[in-house]
Design a protein around this nucleic acid. Structure first.
Length: 500
RNA sequence: GGCCCCAUCGUCUAGAGGCCUAGGACACCGGCUUUUCACGCCGGCAACGCGGGUUCGAAUCCCGCUGGGGUCACCA
């Protein structure tokens, strides 16, 4: 096979945002395509109208774009093998089903969900594994019409081949499933839509997909797909089932984790790509981190650019063991990522962060934002900028004073902090050159003059202007805030002493 | 429970029979730095699940056990 024949796809169903695990699947497919000069196709698996979420598609596209995973064929750009929405390919699936029906590879059944449930329950109570009982005689089309007329659900089931099926997986090796463990499964639902298995196999063939990289939870589905390919005389793509990603405690990473945390009054964990975007992570860092979950370039290499990954990626180096998503390590990656990106890139990413969060700091000009970013050196995520310097963009009256900070820094020792603050107020009012270096010089000399530690002078101001003990370095903080607002906030803090 | 997959530090992993007294990263623990919070720097702790083989030699190959995971829908 020539390398230009590599065609891979990412096939999400439009039920929400892009999950972080889905992002890794998309990335691996994308990397393979880019490395081989092949095509990365985006296909939308919208065959279940009941589960569909209205604005999910634009969200997924937006998440993919934010990550930088561009597609060569798919929604919004089309391509030679479209349409790329399964809901627009119904006619194709229908004709394939007809073909299978004609050739005896599929048959109609008329069971209601309730009847099926009874059969399954019975099998369970008898400790038998349930497999759909294939009828000796397949119902005719006329039978199907009659059943439909009588109001019974009509579905089409695939007659699985009666031999064992071997899946050749390039990560796991050969996986053999015996004939008796295979079941006749539904390929056309009673609403006329194809099931996932059916649509997926047909589209992969027609779209000339060469490699299928997907999560390992699909491994058990693969014999079904291979059976279908055999009956339809399709070719079988190269399969590569990726190890799964779990929470650090081994549970599934699910959107429900967010609800649970919220219910407990905790901060919800990031699960979807969009969550990480909102939390202030860099997309390239997320990609780098997630690539290392199940894949490793070897040679103790970890920090990789997208280009590095395109170059180093290989199916052979994908592991078999499930991984746990270590948020601490991601945070560490993001910290170095933020410390090493170019300042223009950082500014762009920060603007994006402010925009998705609709933060008032958006109003600031580039120079001011750059100054804030510089002042927040050591930040782990862009959210840190908000906790550390967000007070700058709050109206004076919206500053909330942390009671512990007030007590410890200002009120303690008979209001020693307040006393220093009062002296500082006078000195600062007279200081005209409102710029970091100059302010720094002033404050240092005052500390020396008054024979106090720098911290004993810095902390009272910090609390006065920010309400907390956390802010950028004090002189930078003052420059960022400006002379006027600094004065107002000190006055405001001073009033706390008397309670007026 | 049936079927399937997997098994190296707490976590992500390197390791493709001798280079392993098992390497890196994160976390953790100590120390340094310090103007708060972070960052940074230095040092340390820490793993081949168990039992059998095969071999001169096994983390690496084989078998069993144990453990973990996935899947058993007219959802993808």
């Amino acid at each position: 096979m020539s390398s230009s024949a590599v065609r891979v796809r990412f096939a999400p169903s439009p039920t929400g945002y892009l999950h972080i695990g889905g992002a890794r699947t998309a990335l691996f497919n994308w990397l393979l395509a880019r490395q081989c000069g092949g095509q990365f196709i985006l296909r939308i698996e919208d065959t279940d109208q009941t589960r569909e979420v209205a604005d999910s598609l634009p969200k997924i596209l937006q998440d993919l774009r934010w990550l930088g995973l561009n597609w060569d064929e798919g929604p919004e750009i089309g391509g030679p093998y479209g349409p790329y929405f399964q809901s627009e390919r119904l006619e194709i699936y229908r004709s394939c089903a007809e073909r299978l029906l004609d050739q005896g590879w599929a048959y109609f059944t008329f069971d209601t969900p309730e009847e099926l449930a009874v059969m399954r329950d019975q099998a369970r109570s008898e400790k038998r594994t349930f497999r759909y009982p294939r009828p000796a005689q397949f119902p005719t089309r006329a039978d199907a019409e009659q059943a439909r007329a009588a109001g019974r659900p009509v579905v089409v089931r695939f007659r699985m081949p009666d031999h064992a099926i071997t899946v050749h997986d390039s990560i796991l090796g050969d996986v053999v499933v015996q004939a008796e463990d295979l079941e006749d499964f539904v390929i056309v639902k009673s609403d006329g839509f194809p099931t996932y298995h059916f649509a997926c196999v047909i589209d992969d063939e027609l779209m000339k997909i060469s490699h299928i990289l997907r999560a390992q939870e699909h491994l058990n589905n693969t014999p079904k797909h291979v059976g279908l390919q055999e009956a339809l005389q399709f070719s079988t793509p190269v399969y590569a089932h990726l190890p799964l990603i779990f929470n650090i405690n081994g549970t599934k990473m699910s959107k429900r984790d967010k609800e649970k945390a919220l219910a407990k009054g905790e901060k919800p964990p990031e699960i979807d790509v969009h969550d990480f975007r909102m939390a202030g992570y860099l997309p390239e860092v997320i990609l780098n981190f997630v690539a290392l979950l199940g894949w490793s370039p070897g040679q103790d290499r970890e920090k990789l650019s997208l280009d590095d990954m395109v170059q180093l990626f290989s199916l052979e180096r994908i592991g078999k063991t499930n991984a746990r998503f270590d948020r601490d390590k991601l945070l560490a990656f993001n910290t170095t990522g933020l410390a090493t990106v170019s300042s223009t890139r950082r500014l762009d990413a920060f603007r994006d962060f402010l925009a998705v969060n609709q933060h008032p700091m958006q109003q600031a000009g580039d120079a001011q934002l750059q100054a804030i970013l510089r002042a927040c050196e050591g930040l782990r995520t862009f959210s840190d900028v908000l906790t550390k310097a967000g007070f700058i963009y709050l109206p004076d009256e919206a500053i909330t004073y942390d009671s512990k900070a007030i007590e410890k820094v200002l009120r303690r020792n008979d209001g020693a902090g307040f006393a220093i603050l009062r002296k500082l107020d006078a000195a600062l009012q007279q200081h005209a050159d409102w710029e970091t270096a100059s302010l720094d010089q002033l404050l240092k000399s005052l500390a020396e003059q008054w024979s106090i530690k720098f911290g004993d002078l810095a902390q009272p101001i910090r609390v006065a202007v920010s309400g907390t003990t956390v802010s950028p370095s004090i002189s930078e903080t003052l420059e960022l805030l400006g002379h006027e607002r600094t004065g107002r906030r000190i006055q405001q803090a001073l009033r706390l002493q008397t309670g007026t």
